[in-house]
Write a protein that binds this DNA or RNA. Structure first.
Lengths: 352, 352
DNA sequence: CCGCAAAATGTAATCCATTACATTTTCTCT
DNA sequence: AGAGAAAATGTAATGGATTACATTTTGCGG
């Protein structure tokens, strides 16, 4: 196959002036027509529209934005694309932005502070109007100073003392509810797999677990708290699970702060010939697609990812339009406990 | 919690003129310094840099782009973000773009032709310099006309008679190899799950399957070819699998054109009490993360997603820089057959 | 110390659309 | 028909940077 290589001499692109000439009006009138100003007589507008049609004119958006001092672009920074949790939030962000005629520059920060910074600098250089931050690894000092000058919304995670709006669920409450659920099933030997990061969700889930255990007067064993890596990778979860399942006595339930980790626990259990939930109860967090692909379907906490993404956009644009009466600077959306198959009563239920 | 709501009176942003004044030079000199022109005396450049530093000046990128008639942005259109296959390609695109100082506008087309069009129109309005198309649902006539004026690269999928570069694997060859592999294991009753879309990959995989079967003189049963929906959803795969497994005789192997579909087959088999690969062999395609989460690990064809993404960017920028000598307008990258656990010899091997 | 080429810097046009303000047209009312 | 207000349109400044071309400065040889 050989192609005729087109030399894309796009040629002098049609601009507003040529449209004006063609329509026999001034550029101002063309511009007004373009922006649906009511000050243009219908008959004139019609003439302009015809000229636009004939010449195939498309307004130069950057020029317009330069003049209006906006970019109609928002940034969405995520530490990776591989976690379906982020994918769903990004989908929500994209949907809402689409409706509001904004474009989303999706940035994969890889969890590196320097790429986070480079992306955020696009705000200073007027390439984007605002940014939505999913889980990030900031040096908070820098971010705090930055946030004072820029429009930023935090989604899922938030830095508590950062004065910018956020959207998330009540991680603490959800965790307490989940752990109480396990306790009510009869579990007392409940272990936990967290992650090696400083996310507020990680900290709140840890605290929720501790408080739920304390409330029932159940002792918490330090070696039943293992850490996966910062990004909840399957491999790191596997390692944590193997350690946990090697303790004696073994926990009867493992509360994981992400679904992927829960799946890794199930995988580790499978490897050891332990049945789930028969011999081991496992719970996840987030409710991503993975959870109902193979049995046992995962018992987990569902987050309204899509809605969280959408809400972030709204919050951000509220800020951009300087509607200062915008309420709910810190927004919490409802979560839901999904009872499925990976959690059941322990085989030799101890009394509470 | 209550926050001090900052009124972000960003104030009259510093521009190049103020820097010039501060440094006691002209705007031209500032601009030259900014662009590392060698025509600026080091001592002057130093003075300018100090002024920039003092004023905290950041160049207005859209203004620069307006003048230079470029945007430093590329579009990446994907039908969804939920398929990890796309996520990995997008990650590759993002990585390479980052290295080359381009930004990526990731667009979720939801498989709708109208959103595809709306996104692509951003090229005409100078909001992006070029676009990378992942699987798309075009009306090809429109796209063909559009591609003549714009810089477009097709990734994974390609429209055969569209004169724009593409990156993919040899889907036909990979399929033949996979089906031959199954045949060599002893399978003759090999079914296939395709998808209800017109992707070239779908067609080539179908053809590869048919040719591989024909070569060995194995009859192909029409009712052993089922279609999942256009986006390879788990649910639609499940339905297809259930139908297939209800036939009599039942196939001993099912070749799926995506990993998700293969997982749905395994799930359906599980439901029916069939062991994989003992009683049923299943193979996937793509090698996404899902494949090694639970046993049986999936036997599949690995695509170099990340590299395909990276290569797309290179191809696109080659075009933008009008290096017409750019070779490889249609690029094929190597794939790899991943022999894992979901394929084995049939229990009652028929002789070939 | 002069002259001249080369180097450095400056001036002003340019990219394209928006919009304040000025001007012209239209329409209403008498 | 003419005045005056309202509506429609035009003119030109504007946003911020780049760059062709003009001008000034520097440095070197003699």
């Amino acid at each position: 196959m050989d192609y005729i290589l087109r030399i894309r001499e796009v040629g002098p692109v049609v601009n507003i002036e040529q449209v004006a000439r063609q329509a026999g009006v001034s550029v101002a009138t063309v511009s007004r027509t373009l922006n649906n100003s009511s000050a243009v007589r219908p008959v004139t507008a019609q003439r302009v529209r015809e000229a636009i049609e004939e010449l195939g004119y498309v307004p130069n958006q950057p020029a317009r934005n330069l003049r209006r001092n906006e970019s109609q672009v928002i940034l969405a920074l995520a530490p990776n694309f591989s976690n379906p949790y982020y994918s769903r939030i990004l989908t929500g962000i994209g949907d809402r932005a689409w409706e509001l005629e904004y474009s989303v520059l999706v940035c994969n920060t890889l969890g590196h502070a320097n790429s986070e910074r480079r992306f955020l600098k696009m705000l200073e250089s007027h390439q984007a109007d605002g940014a939505i931050l999913l889980g990030c690894h900031w040096d908070y000092g820098w971010l705090a100073r930055f946030a004072e000058r820029s429009h930023i919304v935090q989604c899922c995670e938030y830095v508590p003392d950062l004065a910018c709006p956020s959207v998330s669920i009540d991680n603490y409450g959800a965790t307490r509810e989940m752990v109480a659920y396990l306790q009510n099933l009869g579990h007392r030997r409940i272990a936990m797999i967290g992650a090696d990061n400083q996310y507020i969700s990680t900290r709140l889930r840890r605290q929720g677990y501790l408080d739920a255990m304390a409330e029932r007067g159940i002792e918490v064993r330090e070696d039943w708290y293992r850490l996966a890596d910062a990004e909840y990778s399957f491999a790191s979860g596997l390692a944590a699970a193997q350690t946990l399942l090697g303790t004696d006595p073994r926990p009867t339930a493992i509360f994981c702060i992400s679904d992927i980790l829960a799946l890794s626990v199930i995988s580790a259990a499978q490897e050891l010939g332990l049945s789930v939930p028969g011999e081991l109860t496992v719970t996840g967090f987030d409710d991503v697609d993975y959870t109902t692909i193979v049995h046992p379907y995962l018992t987990t906490v569902a987050q309204p990812c899509h809605e969280m993404g959408r809400r972030s956009v709204d919050l951000l644009l509220d800020g951009l339009q300087a509607r200062e009466d915008s309420p709910d600077r810190r927004t919490f959306l409802p979560y839901r406990l999904m009872e499925r198959e990976s959690a059941a009563a322990p085989q030799n239920a101890e009394t509470l």
